[in-house]
Each structure stands twice: as structure tokens, then as C-alpha cells.
Write a protein that binds this DNA or RNA. Structure first.
Lengths: 327, 327
DNA sequence: TCCAACAATGTAATCGTGTGCATTGACTTT
DNA sequence: AAAGTCAATGCACACGATTACATTGTTGGA
């Protein structure tokens, strides 16, 4: 195992002090161009790079970002995570990923991560409360994704607004003659979960309608499949689902297990607009998130936080209708 | 922003030296039980936790693990990553995720991560060569996933063996009367890519058959969809795909665009056995990886590496046939 | 009673970098 | 020519925790 070369050794090789080596790297302050290039070429030759851990120790800035997610397997989170990580890489920040989904003790997990002095925390998971995140990560103010859009001086928010697009979808489905609506949500009491249901409920209310049937899944395919069996026993000709994956599960059960025709007998509407929803075998109508804008918003908030005294902000991202052939 | 409490401050509060505070934490060596519990209760009260960065500085052990992946969006990698991260969390190790897929300069990205003194590196991506990984991450010996199973003293390997299961699948498909086979691989020249093709080619050879048609995608749905249009112009009644996602794309094009019936007109075989392949709307026959065993193997190699002078090992994981209704 | 052994804790060095301050030397100004 | 200015660099300390070594106090045995 080759040990890594240290700045002191490089200084000895270059015939300067370690302080001069240190000065050769970031902004190149107060240092003759000759020695600077000398040091840099020697550094390249011995493949020297400063130790980020030691640097962080007196910088008070680690360059680490904790991403608290539910489960990467979930396509919605996978797409968001992928986009954000690419963005962080461009900002020369390192993501540490925490999977709350399968963890026994989520708070313990976050404490374990907090000792790494992360500069920023992005909480995607709704299994973690804002207060816990703020309390545990003392070195950084969290950014909460899809939480309630209330001003909160201890965290920044990115949240979704889908009322308009939901109305657009409902209007079309009602115009098609559907009258018996169902909603398949999550069991979670998180803000965004309730907000999404409300967008559609409000849109229905304007037609004098409401959800006659309701179900609760856990955002997985299997839960959508299972809930379909229960919910479709009632008279239902349109189902709105809390995410795309449950919608696909529900549709599969309806079509393959219960012999319904989609969209003739049953309209199915998802949420998130994941790439898989666009696969031709699904071609799901969905209340879609603009993933690019979403990631840009998060990255922007992180950028804001880099000045010490920045106020905490909130950003609202508009959803749009993705039209498929299931509604 | 609450600063984090330091060991020196806690020592002052407890009326001891910072050395004693340090001794109270890990193995509790040489320290009276009274002061130990006193310090621990005070630590809990002020929610003190040691700074991992400072600790790593003289420990020579950071607890960080770099996971070099292609793209999280890819369901195969997402499932493996999820499993491995959960396992790492149980081992109290922190994962840093690098996405090579969308990165302009992959080597630069790895260099950026290498300054964090990671203890271990797991390379899933085939966009990075073994030599580059070893060269850049001097502080850790990489574990290479799905690379060639040759002994290599600078890295450990986990690789797949699918010859037997591939033969099982091919035997069944040939018994069904198929004779005109095609293979849709990746453009990558990685070992595992070629090995997978070989498993099926060998199985076909035993029936005096071979791949009459070949295509090259990039492991995405879209590339499977597009290649279908080209490949299915030839006379083909069975296609083996390099992964499940391309298989689904190819099947969608065959069914919805070209009017083929699966499996009547065309057998479709995927690889990886991802969860999505099991969704009823796909129900893909696939050469599946035992994800549990795969993750356990990687975790085992990491555990091995924790003793300084451990030999580098390689582990072979057997694939199995997942039977769906596409073949 | 005296010395040795040992447990408990403090002191100080260490890990690798970054940076304020002091020092040196060359160059400019009057 | 004397003095002031400024660029270039070294010195030393800080960041926060760990650990070898030194020190203290206590106890047990001869």
C-alpha cells in the first residue's frame, strides 16, 4: 500500500517550506510564479494532492454534503439523486448518501454521518423530521425537499406546486365522462403526501366530485398491485396514485388480474413523471416534476448557504401534466 | 449556526483533560468507571460527538468508502448500490458516491474523491479501468465488481458466472423451436460484457447454433428500443439482451411498433433480474444475479481489507434463471 | 515501614494543512 | 545615500482528537 505523499515531504523535495507548498495550490497568493510552477510540476510528478481531511480541520469547510434519502431503488429518488450528484460534482462537493429506508435506527444513522462535519444536508426522505435533522447536523443547515412551504428560519425548502396541472388532468378525465374517482396515497402523514392529494381533490371539487374510494400503499409496485385488488372492488373508473410506481402496479393488477381495460374501463394517473412512466408499455399519464428545475433549485440553495449569514429561502417548483394513454 | 462542541470544552466542563475525554469513548481503556460515566452523561447532555475528520487524521482510517458507479438511474446499479449502502451503514462506514456516467472527466472526478482518504473503493462502473483506480486511490486497494476473474495482486474482484444458467435458458428456448438468435450487447469492451455474450454463445454452440444478428446499445431503454428496429429486420425469433432494461425497450418496440407477439413470434431474454423485470407487465425471462449474495461478497471483501496485510481475493457469484413469460 | 506495582490522569507530540506575523532582500523615492 | 515599500518566503500556531510517556496517588507485600 503506497502511502500518500505529504506536503512536508514535497516541500523538502522542492527545497521550500511546507507553507509555500500550501500557498501554491488554491488561489496562488503571494508567491513567485517560478516557485509556484516548480512546486506544481513536482506535485504532478509525485502525484501529490492535499489531504482534504487535514484541510477541512482548519478550514471549517469539509466539502461534504449529506443526502438523506429513503431508498435509492425508488426510481423517483434515484433520478433526483443522480441529477443532484452530477451537479454537486461540478461544484466540487462530495455526496455522502444515507439510506433511511432499511435502517433500524434512522437518528443513529444521521448521528453517525454528522460527525463528518458535512457542509450541507439535503433531506429527501419524509421519514426524518425537520427538527431531528436540524438538531443532529449542527454544522450545516438542512435543505428540506418537498416539505411544507412555511417559512422556517432553521432550514431552506424546495417544494412542489401542482394544483394547476392536477386541475388540467382532472378536467380532461372528467370531460371523458369519468365520475367515480379513487385516490391511492401513502400511509405517510408527510406534508407533500397530503398536498398532492389535495391538489386533485380540489380539482374534483370544482366539478362537484370527490374521492369515493381511498387506499394507502407504501409507494412500491407491490403495494399498488395489492391495493388495486381492494380498491377496484368498488365502482371506480379513475384512480389517482401518489406516485408512478404504485400507478404502474395498480394498472398491472387491473389489467392482468382483474381484466379491466385501461383507459377504456379505468383511467390511471400517476405522479412524478419518472422515465419509466414514459416507457411505451406503460405510457402513464402523470403529474410530472421538472427534474432539471428541481435539481437546479437545490443546487442554488446550497450555493446560497455558502455565505455564512445567508437567509434561509424557499423555492416552489411547478409541476406539469405528462400525457400518456392511461387517461 | 450552533458550532459543534469540542473535546477540550467538554473536558473543561467535566474538570478533566481532553485526553481523558478521548479515552472515555471507544474501548474505554485505563479509565475509572466513575469519570467515564460522568463524561458520557455530560457528552450526551451537550450532544458531543468526536470530530471524525480530526480523528481520521492520526488514525489513518477515515471510515469513508468510495462507490464508483455509472449512473444511479440504471436500476441494476441502483439495486446493488442500495444493498451495499445498507450493509455499509451496519458496518458504520460512510459511502461517497461517484457518478461516472455524466461526468466530463472521470479521472478528475476520482482524483477529487481520492483526497478524502477513503479506506475502500468499490468500482461498479466499467468506464474506469482497474489501473486508473489503483493509481488514483493510493490510500485503499480497490474492489472491482464484475471484472475479469484473473488473480491480480492490486485489487479484489467480485465476478459473475452465468454459463450454467444461460445454458438452461437457451436449452429451453431451443426446445421451443427457436433457431434464429440475436444478441444485443453494449458497445463497451469490458470483460463482463464479453463474458455474458460468451455464456449464451457457448450454450447455443452446443446446439450447433450461433448469433446470426448482433446489435450494440448503451444499456438504456431507448437504445434497446432503437436497436430493435434495426435488428428485427433480419429473421430473428429470439433475442438475448445485455441487460433487462434494454430487453424491455426491445420488447416494447417489437410489440407496439412492429406488431410482433412476445413470446409467440419472438422470445426476449434479459440479464440482471432487476425488480422491474418482475413487474407483471414485463415478466421478463432473465439471467438473474443473486443481489443478496453479491452484496454480501463485496461486504466480505471490505471486511477482509481491514487487516492491513490481507491478500487480495476474488469471489465468483453464480447466476440463476428467472423465468417469465417472454421466453 | 519502605518499596514496588499499578491504576488514573495530565502533558505534550502527532496527524497534514492553512494562515497571520515576522523576516529578508530588492527596488523605488527624495 | 538613507529610508520606505513591497514581493517572497519561513516560522509557528491552530484545527480537534488520539496516544506514548510522565506523573501522581494508592495499595499490597515483605
Amino acid at each position: 500500500m503506497n502511502k500518500r505523499i505529504t506536503s512536508k515531504e514535497l516541500a523538502r523535495l522542492a527545497g521550500v517550506s511546507s507553507a509555500t507548498v500550501s500557498r501554491a495550490f488554491p488561489g496562488a497568493t503571494k508567491l513567485s510564479e517560478a516557485t509556484r510552477s516548480h512546486i506544481l510540476s513536482l506535485a504532478a510528478q509525485h502525484s501529490y494532492q492535499p489531504n482534504a481531511l487535514a484541510r477541512s480541520l482548519n478550514n471549517q469547510r469539509s466539502g461534504l454534503v449529506a443526502l438523506v434519502v429513503n431508498a435509492i431503488q425508488n426510481p423517483t429518488e434515484a433520478e433526483q439523486l443522480q441529477g443532484l450528484i452530477l451537479q454537486l460534482q461540478r461544484m466540487a462537493l462530495m455526496p455522502i448518501v444515507l439510506c433511511c429506508g432499511g435502517a433500524e435506527d434512522r437518528l443513529q444513522l444521521m448521528r453517525l454521518a454528522s460527525i463528518y462535519q458535512v457542509d450541507h444536508v439535503v433531506v429527501f426522505s419524509d421519514l426524518v423530521t425537520l427538527d431531528d435533522a436540524v438538531e443532529i447536523f449542527r454544522t450545516a443547515r438542512p435543505i428540506i425537499v418537498s416539505s411544507e412551504p412555511l417559512p422556517h428560519n432553521r432550514a431552506s425548502h424546495v417544494t412542489l406546486e401542482g394544483a394547476k396541472a392536477a386541475a388540467e388532468i382532472i378536467d380532461k378525465v372528467v370531460a371523458d365522462g369519468r365520475r367515480h374517482f379513487a385516490y391511492l396515497g401513502g400511509r405517510s402523514s408527510s406534508y407533500i403526501d397530503k398536498a398532492r392529494r389535495r391538489w386533485f381533490a380540489d380539482a374534483l371539487a370544482r366539478h362537484g366530485l370527490g374521492f369515493a374510494t381511498e387506499g394507502h400503499g407504501d409507494f412500491t409496485y407491490d403495494s399498488g398491485y395489492k391495493e388495486a385488488v381492494v380498491m377496484l372492488r368498488s365502482r371506480v373508473d379513475a384512480v389517482v396514485c401518489g406516485n408512478d410506481v404504485m400507478a404502474i402496479g395498480l394498472r398491472d393488477a387491473a389489467v392482468h388480474l382483474m381484466g379491466r381495460k385501461v383507459p377504456e374501463d379505468l383511467a390511471v394517473i400517476g405522479q412524478d413523471g419518472i422515465q419509466i412512466a414514459g416507457w411505451q408499455s406503460h405510457d402513464l399519464t402523470s403529474l410530472a416534476i421538472d427534474q432539471g428545475a428541481y435539481v437546479q433549485a437545490i443546487a442554488g440553495l446550497i450555493e446560497d448557504q455558502r455565505q455564512e449569514d445567508a437567509a434561509q429561502r424557499r423555492v416552489v417548483i411547478d409541476c406539469f401534466a405528462r400525457w400518456g394513454r392511461t387517461a
